[in-house]
Design a protein around this nucleic acid. Structure first.
Lengths: 108, 108
DNA sequence: GGGATTGTCAAGTAGAAACTTCAGTATTCT
DNA sequence: AGAATACTGAAGTTTCTACTTGACAATCCC
């Protein structure tokens, strides 16, 4: 019962928050621990944890705890869903423009 | 003073709402009036108007009023910004994987 | 002109989301 | 063992957001 519709919902919701997007951007440069992610941000560690949980549930980020440190990294598969949504939209309106072109061509 | 950072912020925020995403998806199939967009949705016309305003401010949708009807259509340029953000992230983590590969190769 | 259609504006409300504090646990370091 | 580090969980607060209602304006149709 985990439809792709829900996936894309969670993904866009996750990226809708600027702090979470900043986390993703920093993780794109490479894996990091929770506290190193928190350091430059002016929010508490708890807040960062909550953001990471949202990101993880959306499938954009994967985390793994070893010893007492939890390492976070980007999960490319999540981004593939986003890329697909974008491509689907584009192909839709491009098809419409083509149809319009055909129509106009037949007019003359 | 309209940095690309703000652009991407508005774009992701706009798409973070499922109703707005539904509007975008339907507009991808072709231009529509506000009321025809509102009909299948179980929210008021006013709510749809508010969503469209957010979408327009984000640059994802363009609207034009002729007579009493406002026609809405997708604005591809807005999506290009989104596509670029996505490509930038991907190229970042791909580069990192390459570097990791090089490092591992030198190990042996 | 009069009624129906289509959209706009202002103000208010309910629920969601982000963030905080604080207390607690597991792990590592000395 | 004791102190420091890194995170976890529960609970409360505040700010934001989606949505509504109701009054109003412009346009179209008969």
């Amino acid at each position: 019962m985990n439809s792709p519709k829900d996936d894309i919902d969670r993904i866009f919701h996750a990226l809708g928050d600027p702090t979470r997007r900043a986390l993703v951007e920093r993780l794109s440069a490479g894996p990091q621990s929770v506290s190193s992610l928190a350091t430059p941000l002016d929010v508490t560690l708890t807040a960062v944890m909550q953001h990471l949980q949202v990101l993880e549930e959306s499938g954009l980020v994967r985390t793994e705890k070893i010893g007492r440190v939890r390492t976070c990294r980007v999960e490319p598969a999540g981004f593939a869903v986003l890329q697909k949504w974008l491509s689907d939209r584009r192909s839709m309106w491009e098809r419409n423009l083509d149809l319009l072109g055909d129509f106009l061509a037949e007019e003359e």
